[in-house]
């Protein structure tokens, strides 16, 4: 009895610590985004004079006449990087999932392109990304893809493809081949078997892999910094508010908050799929 209670207490404490650990920075970010310039460096959680200035600065820097005016020339409204990031991340996700699915299907059903190649694609993700910066810059310069959002989308699709393959392969492996064979015997073509049987069943896996890839593309900074100049994505834009010239902490917090809204909304919309996806709860009916 006492043991049980003790166990519960310990679990509660652990959970509480975990919650505080994850929530605090977010709370701090929210609080900071509503603070006035003078308050940015004070350690209070509640803003004394809550203001929307930071958000105005984000969305229409031209209308600002206050102390930030010196920066406005270099900053575009955040909506543009936001839209760019949406396009980049969505494109990268769609490409990686489509190619990833068919690669995973081949790997699962026909053992192609061979387990070594498959493992090798994962290996490239084990090196620090900085290793690839120079060759990528050279490729992108040659292909005239510098400062081009499609270039970034392709790069992200390529670098996240291996995750799509590995996640989806796990899901496809769990689907008994008999289901596809049954479809064939009832007159379906191999493609129909894939589209009507395999894809609906692995959809939760696609959602999980998709969200994962979307988030990776959404938050990627290194390549975005190196490969863009004017057409910056959101992650680069967020970093721009704190520069050598000056540090707009409050504005950056607001930007960070705005940039986390999209993943949050997506996560909320697909949460039903996420649960099935994460628990692989599809086959064992």
């Amino acid at each position: 009895m006492i043991r049980k209670i003790l166990a519960k207490v310990v679990i509660c404490i652990v959970l509480a610590v975990a919650v505080v650990w994850t929530i605090t920075p977010v709370m701090w970010m929210i609080s900071l985004s509503f603070k006035t310039y003078g308050e940015w460096r004070t350690p209070s959680l509640i803003p004394h004079n809550p203001t929307l200035d930071n958000y105005i600065m984000l969305f229409s820097p031209q209308s600002i006449t206050t102390i930030f005016i010196a920066y406005t020339a270099v900053l575009e409204p955040i909506t543009r990087p936001l839209i760019r990031s949406l396009i980049i991340s969505a494109t990268a996700t769609v490409i990686a999932i489509i190619i990833g699915f068919f690669t995973a299907y081949g790997a699962s059903r026909y053992n192609s392109p061979g387990s070594f190649t498959l493992f090798f694609t994962l290996l490239t993700r084990m090196l620090p990304p900085a290793v690839f910066v120079t060759p990528i810059v050279i490729y992108f310069t040659t292909l005239a893809l510098i400062d081009n959002i499609i270039g970034l989308a392709l790069l992200y699709a390529a670098t996240t493809l291996t995750y799509a393959v590995w996640i989806l392969k796990g899901f496809i492996d769990a689907i008994p081949i008999e289901w596809e064979e049954a479809a064939l015997l009832e007159g379906a073509s191999p493609l129909q078997a894939i589209f009507k049987v395999v894809i609906p069943i692995v959809r939760p896996g696609m959602v999980v892999a998709g969200l994962f890839i979307f988030l990776m593309s959404w938050t990627e900074l290194l390549f975005a910094l190196v490969l863009t100049n004017l057409n910056v994505p959101l992650s680069v834009q967020v970093s721009k508010y704190v520069t050598a010239v000056g540090a707009l902490w409050g504005v950056q917090a607001a930007a960070a908050l705005v940039s986390s809204i999209i993943p949050l909304v997506i996560g909320y919309l697909i949460q039903r799929h996420l649960i099935t996806g994460f628990t692989f709860g599809l086959v064992r009916g």
Partner: peptide
């Protein structure tokens, strides 16, 4: 020629009606 397998006979993502309808639909 149609085959009834020992296991994994039905598509789990479809209801019984859709399962039976499958071969006609394709």
């Amino acid at each position: 020629v149609c085959l009834v397998f020992q296991e994994y006979a039905v598509f789990p993502h479809m209801n019984v009606y859709e399962n039976i309808e499958f071969g006609l639909k394709v």
